[in-house]
Design a protein around this nucleic acid. Structure first.
Lengths: 148, 148
DNA sequence: TTATTAATGATAACTATTTGCATTATAGTA
DNA sequence: TACTATAATGCAAATAGTTATCATTAATAA
């Protein structure tokens, strides 16, 4: 398991600094604007590369969905979802499963409004995991690696 | 408040049918493939337009984030987020606010694994709402509309 | 100080989605 | 039933956000 050497470049340092100094959660292009003020020659691809790299190292968190594709659901009854982090597949988590959770969330809403100043319209709860198919694939790969 | 007339076209009907017949949550291009089998001349832009339209009418649900841009967070402590549906801005909901919720979620995890067959790795809870700035803008627009 | 190679900047490519526009088809009316 | 207004379509081009390529630069270990 040899590990890639890690270099703390000027760009990387400034990117991390700017992200840490900001109260908001910046998008790649917002961050690009800020870093540019310190390092006018920085490239947008350096921003993207470093965000990936820093997230992989656990120094920052990537928010939102891993897959950019939107998905659509004809079931408009309240229910939650579970998404496979490997393949992007989304399945249902029946509402009965999570009625306790949704009750807890509802109880918290007023407090969230007071603290954040937002009008809360709803929420989005999604479990993340590895779907049965992808787990099988993983296990197969594992066996092949060990087999020879 | 005059309302746009709504026409049930062949394409629209098949799109809705295919979405309702599928157990999974389809992405636009997956749906495109299926609709194409019934209507070979259908265009991908018809799929997109109808998904938007049907979601607006409340006949289907759009899953995942409204904005496709990823955002990044240098705070790697556990906490939840609240996102503005108008402008895409993301703020923190402090962990203390939602410790009750996260406890309820943790208690449910084992059950979710059993039902869905997934290995659950984590979850993502995001409140949706309108941020103070956007609310102010909305109110201003409202006043202007009524004012004259 | 030098050698290795990780990281960079510039640019092209790519993916998912949206838009413009001329044409077609639906629903309401004569 | 035919006519009309306009919603919706198909196609192509445009766009947004992100990723890949590649020659060049610079950080680290010897």
């Amino acid at each position: 398991m040899l590990q890639k050497k890690w270099r703390m470049t000027n760009q990387r340092r400034v990117i991390l600094e700017e992200l840490r100094n900001s109260k908001e959660h910046l998008s790649a292009d917002e961050l690009y604007m800020r870093v540019k003020k310190k390092l006018p020659n920085v490239s947008i691809s350096t921003i993207y590369r470093n965000l990936e790299e820093l997230a992989e190292q656990g120094l920052i968190r990537k928010l939102g969905p891993q897959s950019i594709q939107k998905r659509f659901d004809a079931n408009i009854q309240p229910h939650f979802h579970i998404r496979c982090v490997k393949c992007g597949r989304i399945d249902d988590v029946p509402f009965s499963m999570v009625s306790e959770v949704s009750q807890a969330i509802r109880k918290t809403t007023a407090m969230v409004e007071k603290i954040t100043g937002y009008d809360v319209l709803g929420y989005h709860l999604e479990f993340l995991g590895i779907c049965p198919e992808c787990r099988k694939k993983e296990e197969k790969k594992e066996r092949e690696r060990n087999g020879r």
